[in-house]
Write a protein that binds this DNA or RNA. Structure first.
Lengths: 197, 197
DNA sequence: CTTTTGACCAATTTTTAAAAATAGTCAAAT
DNA sequence: ATTTGACTATTTTTAAAAATTGGTCAAAAG
């Protein structure tokens, strides 16, 4: 029952966060949405960060289902990488504001650094699985899976950051997102080709 | 004689820009360094931007000599790409503050966008030459040189942006720069392998 | 014992307006 | 063709007041 209420709160907070962003959402607003007092909200989540964290973990769990399904059904490495990019795009479009804020937020705080490091490592983990699979079934040459996965993830993320936005700090629109995705897929193809047997 | 004076100004401005950054350098300071009046400085350069532009072009010319030499003496594609990365690093360390400012500056202004677009295209041009050479001498498969070069440059730049800095917005130190360079070289190797015959 | 709340605080952010600094101009002097 | 001092318009800094917000707590309600 406590967990049920927590889920309720997570749901309400997620709505606000993903529509207006983290910074522009106050704890009072979340509480008001559920007709709770702010003090009551703090009874379930000791601070704003832990609420955000809970949301992030929920999204991660949600996406894990999709990712694992792909991991089980797709056999070729490039196909898998491309599916991962598509999934990421899906989630990006769905949780736009949230993810955007997450990237730019008070990154100097230790807990934020840890959270984004965790998310990075999780992505690296997925890519590692894919690469290992590729090596095992003889599609890829043997190499240091971890460092190469890290390089791949950094490359893909970097490609997303550096994009010829019309106005660099403006929120990116659908076209922009699609152009980025295309570049990432191209890069993925070349990358895989570069570590093929 | 006009050009001589212009060069003098460029030299003085370059010193200040590369030590304190563009934003923290005033036109008066540059003028004072040369014992000119500010009005006189404006006689040679109509505004701050054109002074910065002149400096950028001078650095570009300077680096062109180094780049062309490499282009003539190194024959294998990967060797060339790695040399380019090393050259970039050299110039980055030399003109640290200047380049840093250039990236983050008032990018919303049209003229700044054009300048950085120009620099991007110049880099793409160099990589294109290298790729063409690789295709011509049979080292690489045939592909769309321009778009692939753009992808490569975007990848390399992205790798530089996305780096696990201890404090994200802090100025990056030597170690960080070296780690980035290593990643870029690794990525370059895989990339080239991916478009090899 | 668990859940809920109003009242409260400290710290941060926003606002505002005045002061200072800076990019850029121009008529006159050299 | 160069150079300058004096001038402006626009930003940037500064500092203080006002408002907002994250977070606490003792006490009430269930």
């Amino acid at each position: 029952m406590v967990d049920d209420k927590k889920d309720l709160i997570i749901g309400a907070a997620l709505k606000r966060f993903s529509r207006f962003g983290i910074a522009k959402t106050t704890m009072s607003e979340v509480a008001d949405d559920l007709k709770l007092s702010k003090a009551n909200l703090y009874y379930y989540f000791p601070d704003k960060f832990s609420l955000i964290e809970a949301i992030v973990y929920q999204i991660i769990e949600e996406s894990d289902v999709t990712i694992n399904h792909a991991l089980e059904t797709i056999t070729d490495t490039l196909g898998l990488l491309i599916r991962m990019l598509d999934i990421k795009k899906e989630y990006f479009e769905k949780y736009y504001m949230l993810i955007l804020n997450l990237q730019e937020m008070n990154i100097s705080d230790e807990k934020w650094v840890q959270l984004s490091e965790k998310m990075f490592q999780r992505e690296v983990g997925t890519i590692s699985k894919i690469f290992k699979k590729g090596i095992d079934n003889g599609e890829l040459v043997t190499f240091d899976v971890t460092s190469t996965s890290e390089l791949y993830v950094a490359m893909v993320r970097g490609l997303a950051m550096f994009c010829d936005r019309a106005t660099p700090h403006a929120l990116l629109d659908r076209d922009e997102v699609n152009r980025i995705l295309e570049k990432q897929k191209q890069a993925a193809a070349i990358f895989i080709n570069g570590i093929k047997k």
